[in-house]
Design a protein around this nucleic acid. Structure first.
Length: 761
DNA sequence: ATGTGCGAG
DNA sequence: GCTTCTCGCACAT
């Protein structure tokens, strides 16, 4: 944000990035499970293929992605372990990731076996607080290996990179000590170079790049496909353009390139060739999709297909259960051989009601809620799946399926939703406020509106992400600056009010869930006392009626209420200069370890840095050696007594009571509602700072939405729309149209301020 | 919003 | 000769 960080960001060698690459990852995991495999040639088998193998096997000529038969011919003693179930690898990958998070929150996963870390902040801390660290020479290999020193570059990066090699060394030692995993590390001033330089010395070694050597290093790679971001297709295209090597790509005629590839791609490609990469390490959060697929011998019988889907689904649901979030979309993936012998992938997806899943609170203080299928949900899902299947495969003709896959997406974050009211009130107030007012006005003025568009379009507009600009050099790592918009929910049990999709059709029962609405509405509400209410000494009688919401049972549907962040010793808030580099300045992906950087806080613009005493294992780590017991980031005995460090954290002076209801309505009567000065769960201070007109708007719509909830009872939807066509080729268009009109009326009433509040747990 | 394609490991 | 099992993003519709 500030000028200094912009300047620093543009400094070419400012950042210190580490790339970690686990040595033949799957094989290592298997060797940990069975250590006798270490000395034997080991291959990990998936179907007909050796997907990876250990170095013993490589010594005999076995290679990645080699056919089983050929591998066995080359190496008759080859031990094969089936690695089609990725669960153990996923687990180890997560353990590694968690360990890395103890060093910095800026960790980005690249597949199961690679990670990027932006250690700029760590480096700065050591420079500031561990003077001895500054004198130490780099460890590991230096690229180039001709004796050139890091100091060949005089911009100051030499010392940073040297410290970076120390950090990389410590990380690798800890990975080995705690998890038994060996890996390679590359250290450089950007991600691209860190990744590429790390592979110079394998296995179990590390390499740092002399900054001034970057361009020559890229040239020396020679092969275009070795450059991350240039795959098979791009290489072919480049070859057509007469570009066959990295050097040629560096020297290519840009005007010609732009004609062939377009401006963006052309500059991107050339940046890559020079080793330029401004993309930041984007903290990896929860996955956006959880899927599984199984390739198979050609299947041409429907019951076989069903069987496959059932098995996949059961396994998948296990993973979803561990994840803890509820998905509301499922995708079917098929690979079929067409007549001409070519394989093709095809996918179809559909939404379903979140009520197909239920959250179960596993005992324990943490109360880690897991998720499982609701009763009968398995069969309902299978029905949906088979209908999707029939949208891809014409059952009246013979078919040949060689791969079957399923994947869940559109996950709902429990008690977290970035599309909260706060989102509407902060940034670009005018636009967002317009959205919210028109939204509520719609529901107020035409509560029985028939037109589906009046309901959905303001909604849609409100959720559209603001335009984002990417630097061309963001290249292959770039992601959307905004997180996928979560679905704001009033309730977590799948009432139709949960849907804020502009497309209601896929949500409608007719599409995916034939069960009557009434039954769901029946278990709509809870009598559970909210923690908030208890704290405030709230004493109103419980309102048992499903349609009667107690104000106190609502809280702001915002990530901000997350108070129990496990704080990392090194927070995302790096010392001002590298904050941008760590990716926290722009739009950090939300993750539990991030400080409560609340949206509401931003309203009054008084976000500021507060220095806090933090465990500073960093300086002690700086002096650690391989032989001495490792000062573990997780070890309190090490971190506690160490020198206190000024650690900036995002904090807000007024944050304490953000969610105490300032003036609480204790009953649902219209009378009581008239006394509301401010919606419960909304900080009065914050509320007061809003324009008066907006305050009135909000209160008005808040009040009428509550009244509507009381008077409207079970919120009957006008009709159940038509039963889906039983024919194998379902007419999606008609189903959609029917669903939309069917839900429009009831949705109208739900499309109020309500949606921005969640019940307290 | 959905589906396809590409690129990553 | 292009295999496996995933995941994310860009693009077009």
């Amino acid at each position: 944000m500030d000028f200094a960080s912009v300047l620093n960001k543009s400094e070419p060698h400012q950042r210190t990035i580490i790339h970690l690459d686990m040595d033949c990852f799957y094989a290592q995991v298997e060797e940990i499970r069975d250590p006798t495999l270490r000395t034997r040639p080991l291959g990990i088998q998936q179907k007909n293929i050796v997907v990876t193998c250990n170095y013993v096997a490589r010594a005999q000529g076995v290679r990645k992605l080699m056919l089983i038969a050929e591998a066995q011919r080359l190496c008759p003693q080859l031990v094969l372990v089936n690695g089609e179930d990725l669960a153990p690898y996923r687990l180890m990958s997560q353990k590694i990731f968690d360990l890395l998070l103890n060093y910095t929150p800026a960790v980005e996963k690249l597949g199961f076996d690679e990670d990027f870390m932006d250690v700029s902040a760590l480096v700065e801390l050591r420079q500031a607080h561990a003077p001895e660290a500054q004198q130490k020479p780099p460890v590991g290999h230096i690229c180039p290996s001709d004796g050139t020193q890091l100091t060949a570059c005089s911009c100051g990066c030499a010392q940073r990179l040297a410290i970076g090699t120390r950090i990389a060394q410590e990380i690798r030692e800890e990975l080995h000590l705690r998890l038994g995993i060996t890996c390679c590390a590359g250290i450089a001033y950007n991600k691209l170079l860190a990744k590429l330089v790390g592979s110079q010395n394998k296995p179990n070694q590390q390499t740092v790049l002399v900054s001034t050597y970057a361009e020559e290093f890229m040239r020396q790679l020679n092969d275009l496909q070795r450059v991350t971001g240039i795959g098979q297709k791009t290489q072919t295209l480049l070859l057509e353009a007469g570009v066959a090597s990295v050097e040629q790509l560096q020297q290519c005629d840009m005007e010609f390139m732009r004609k062939k590839f377009g401006f963006e791609t052309a500059t991107k490609l050339r940046d890559l060739a020079f080793g330029r990469d401004m993309s930041s390490v984007r903290p990896t959060g929860k996955p956006k999709t959880i899927g599984m697929e199984d390739s198979c011998k050609p299947i041409s019988v429907l019951t076989d297909v069903e069987e496959k889907f059932r098995m996949l689904l059961l396994r998948l649901v296990e993973q979803v259960a561990e994840d803890g979030r509820i998905p509301i979309a499922i995708k079917v993936v098929l690979r079929k051989k067409s007549a001409d012998g070519k394989s093709h992938r095809e996918t179809k997806q559909a939404n379903f009601l979140p009520s197909l899943f239920k959250t179960i609170c596993s005992m324990g203080e943490t109360g880690v809620a897991k998720v499982q299928l609701a009763d009968g949900a398995l069969d309902k899902l299978l029905k949906i799946i088979m209908r999707l299947f029939e949208r891809i495969v014409d059952l009246s003709k013979p078919f040949n399926i060689t791969l079957i896959g399923l994947s869940f997406s559109k996950f709902q974050e429990r008690k977290v939703g970035s599309s909260s009211i706060a989102n509407f009130l902060i940034k670009k107030t005018d636009l967002e406020v317009q959205s919210i007012t028109s939204l509520t006005n719609t529901s107020l003025t035409s509560p029985t509106a028939e037109s589906p568009t009046t309901v959905s379009s303001p909604d849609e507009a409100a959720f559209r992400s603001s335009p984002t600009t990417f630097k061309p050099s963001d290249q292959f790592y770039r992601r959307r600056a905004t997180t996928a918009s979560p679905i704001p929910m009033l309730l977590d049990n799948g009432s139709e009010s949960a849907a804020t999709n502009s497309d209601f059709s896929d949500f409608s029962e007719t599409e995916v869930e034939p069960s009557p609405k009434k039954s769901r509405v029946g278990r709509l509400l809870v009598s559970k006392r909210s923690r908030l209410a208890a704290d405030v000494g709230e004493s109103a009688a419980d309102v048992a009626s499903p349609s009667k919401l107690r104000v106190c049972d609502l809280r702001l549907n915002s990530r901000d209420s997350e108070k129990d962040f496990p704080m990392s010793p090194t927070t995302a808030c790096t010392p001002s200069t590298s904050a941008a580099a760590a990716g926290s300045a722009s739009t950090p992906r939300f993750r539990t370890i991030q400080p409560p950087n609340t949206l509401l806080n931003r309203i009054d613009g008084s976000l500021r840095f507060v220095t806090t005493r933090t465990a500073s294992r960093l300086s002690s780590n700086a002096s650690s050696t391989a032989s001495s017991p490792l000062p573990s980031p997780m070890d309190d005995s090490v971190s506690a007594p160490s020198t206190p460090t000024a650690m900036p954290m995002l904090h807000h002076a007024d944050a304490a009571d953000n969610f105490a209801a300032p003036s609480v309505s204790t009953s649902m009567s219209t009378d009581a509602l008239s006394h509301i000065a401010c919606p419960a769960g909304v900080d009065a201070k914050v509320f007061k700072e809003l324009p008066v007109e907006l305050q009135n708007e909000l209160i008005a719509s808040w009040r009428s939405s509550l009244v509507a909830a009381v008077t409207n009872g079970s919120g009957d939807s006008s009709s159940q729309s038509a039963v889906p066509s039983p024919s194998s080729t379902t007419n999606a268009a008609t189903a959609r149209a029917g669903g939309t009109t069917a839900t429009a009326a009831s949705a109208t009433q739900k499309n109020t301020l309500y949606r921005y509040f969640l019940r307290n747990k």
